[in-house]
Design a binder for these strands. Sequence first.
DNA 1: TTGAAAGCGATACCAG
DNA 2: CTGGTATCGCTTTCAA
Lengths: 336, 336
Amino acid sequence: MEVLNLTIYDIAREADVSIATVSRVINNPEKVSPKKRAIVKAVLEKYNYTPNAMAQALVNNSSKTIGILVSDITNIHFTRSAYILENLFFKWGYTTLLCNTGDDLNKKIEYIRILSGKKVDGLIMLGSIFKNDKIKDIILDYMPNIPVVTSNVSLFTDNFYSVEVDHSAGMDYAIKHLIERGFNSIYFVQGNETLNTLRKAQAFCVAYQNNKVAGNPKENILTCTHGALGGRQFAEKLFPKINNERKALIFIDDYTAIGAVSQFRKMGVDIPNKLGIIGHDNSTFSICSEPQLTTIDTQIEAISNIIGNTLNNIFNNIQVSKSVIVQPELIIRETT
Amino acid sequence: MEVLNLTIYDIAREADVSIATVSRVINNPEKVSPKKRAIVKAVLEKYNYTPNAMAQALVNNSSKTIGILVSDITNIHFTRSAYILENLFFKWGYTTLLCNTGDDLNKKIEYIRILSGKKVDGLIMLGSIFKNDKIKDIILDYMPNIPVVTSNVSLFTDNFYSVEVDHSAGMDYAIKHLIERGFNSIYFVQGNETLNTLRKAQAFCVAYQNNKVAGNPKENILTCTHGALGGRQFAEKLFPKINNERKALIFIDDYTAIGAVSQFRKMGVDIPNKLGIIGHDNSTFSICSEPQLTTIDTQIEAISNIIGNTLNNIFNNIQVSKSVIVQPELIIRETT
DNA sequence: TTGAAAGCGATACCAG
DNA sequence: CTGGTATCGCTTTCAA
């Protein structure tokens, strides 16, 4: 190998053909005579020629890249998803632009603008991007013709597709399981006010009533700062209220739940005999604690795969569903 | 807003000026008369015009994007780093292409080829990319003029820069601390055979001898599968060998250590009185376990910031150091 | 089957 | 200060 940013002209010159022919052997080899094809291929390989993707993008009006908008990649849930998506799209010849937007509306808008300028072929939005509905219009304005796949929210507009988990079903499994285990006082511990929290809280209420648990579900929603530390602080605060009524806590996610489990353990609370705990996501955190966490698997892997395939199918004109709902699974471990 | 992929020609027509003038008000407004400038600006804003980044990249030979090569973004260490880098570069007007290469040499090569085609302005390599030295040559071949910043390895070639943590110092702090706490038998628990493992193992040996601990450090290196589950299995296997000699285990990372802590706890081992445990990284995992993990903070945040600034300074022709070494810190919690 | 030439959408040089 | 135009590197149409 030698190389130094060769262009298609350099290859053409060395192979003694026109640039059109070089382009053809790269993109439509069958349209070139075997003889010339062989000559050009040899030169291509000799120099390990790689086309300038910017020039290709300009003429094709497609950059072979996918934008992934996520509020916070350090959230283990999204990390896993980004990982899977990146692998899928690599396989399909796309590169992924990962964008952390945080809760900042302006950063979201700015990123959408940038991605539209970079001519992404598709957009994936992970998590609670849509708390503010304005985003939808921005996307429609900046990239009116780009397919957008979202998790966690359905939007029935052209070019929008959604893949979600059925939170109500997850809550239903959890509550049924807790009742079966003899817990007679069931709470949902929500996090910061995100769309994620809102939807799970709502699902909790639905499942609570469907199972005819006594009392008003809304009064059984507790709030806690997200994360292991938040979980620990929450546990400390709740500790005096742990009595003999066999309380059970369903947490917004494993990461927060595990902090609570550890702190309760430290304070001597007997889990699961005195207190039941259930997390959400079946993330790597769930097997870290002692005892190990019972959790609602929100199927992030399946969802990510479907999201990727949806977009890829759209690119290949294969029919896709505008909205798919994935069923969660209850993973019973040691905290219930 | 209305929009539908307008070009600079559309703007020029509507403002009744040439495309050159439009380009100027975007890039060098001071070179345009206030009058025309105002007219053009109005049109620009009316349509919320965003330049086609592909066309810009083609003519500028720079795509305003940074390639980040990482073996596995789901590794919490890299997630944090990617997050920080993405935020920094966004601030500086760059977008980041996140590439998971795994251990697959071919995927690495393929990505380098793709990134060279996409005309990235800089390359960041996180983690043990260089186990195979071939990669270095590939980079030099495909992007001979692009600055490359690596963590975890120094390579003194033109255009290569490195930012690393001093693992020996971390091990030294850890061993001194363990001796002080009265642990008289100190082990290093390594993971899969990566460059990371190799370097920490080496650092362990150096620190072990510097502190004149009795015995041969090489005989005190144990191996364990990476991750919480691996840590648990490791703990189970080691359990019969836990006697009264006050053993201490320094783990390759927190994630593995925490699995071991939980499993030892489950089996009734008294941590830290019978057994001392130290992790690496001071990741979110370290506060999840009960008791909470003492750990060597490998300063991933500082390192990521320096990496980002190095690249940005290079872009701005500000002098940078070819190699910087960051000092770690021992975070003492409850497992020692 | 092949090559010449017209774009793709910007930037920047050179005249005026 | 402004506009015309060459140029970046590629794809694709049109003739030959």
